[in-house]
């Protein structure tokens, strides 16, 4: 269960705009987050992950206070341990596919399963620079899942995947989310691609 009530001034084309999100995400839910470009969807995910501090507000997760700007409480991303799929993938250029997963977890069986799901078994020794856009995106997704996070934040996670692999990945993810009881927040500009797995929807408005 995630309780959020935060505010953050974000840069806009002309001046600034105020990102304001009061919302409640129930445990194990999959929420699709939509909104206009530049409205602050990515910023919201980064605030949840602890990469950016909000100007005002609180975040509570399963009864634990993560952020409280009044008491200046802001626990580190390392302690929040949320899975994060970055829009630019943020893959480590020096690590192979396998090394990415080994950096995140020591669980060899889980690594094998993730490689199978993503169909990257034959690319384990490849560096990201030698993977296609779709392969890189799949690696970003399984790396985020490697720590078996309770919360998974995904920023446009399927944009580079072709229809066939996208459907395969979404089906597999739905199973994993159920298995791990993961609370998932997915930012997407395409509200229809996640109809099968999204249980809730949050529209961020100006």
């Amino acid at each position: 269960m995630i309780q959020v009530d935060i505010e953050k001034k974000i840069k806009a084309y002309k001046g600034t705009r105020n990102l304001k999100v009061p919302h409640f995400f129930s445990s194990g839910s999959v929420t699709l987050i939509t909104g206009e470009s530049g409205v602050g969807k990515t910023t919201f995910l980064k605030i949840l992950a602890g990469f950016i501090e909000p100007d005002r507000g609180r975040i509570n997760v399963n009864g634990v206070e993560w952020v409280n700007t009044q008491t200046k409480k802001n626990i580190s991303p390392q302690k929040r341990l949320v899975g994060f799929v970055f829009q630019d993938y943020a893959l480590f250029p020096n690590m192979t596919v396998l090394q990415h997963l080994q950096y995140a977890t020591k669980d060899e069986l889980w690594i094998e399963k993730l490689l199978t799901i993503s169909k990257l078994e034959t690319f384990i020794n490849h560096l990201p620079v030698y993977l296609s856009g779709g392969q890189q995106q799949r690696l970003a997704i399984i790396r985020a899942l490697a720590t078996k996070p309770e919360i998974l934040l995904m920023d446009e996670p399927f944009s580079a995947l072709d229809i066939e692999i996208k459907q395969h990945i979404i089906n597999e993810l739905a199973t994993i989310f159920g298995l791990l009881s993961t609370t998932v927040l997915i930012v997407s500009h395409n509200p229809y691609e996640l109809e099968n797995i999204a249980t809730n929807r949050l529209i961020i408005e100006i």
Binding site: F84, A90, F92
Partner: peptide, 27 residues
């Protein structure tokens, strides 16, 4: 180096020092 590299490492539970040694320095 994009800040998302460090952020990705932090989200995997790695400290600043581990991130510097394993992610930033090799790149």
């Amino acid at each position: 180096l994009p800040s998302s590299l460090s952020d990705a490492s932090f989200s995997l539970g790695k400290s600043k020092w581990q991130t510097f040694i394993h992610v930033l320095l090799p790149n």
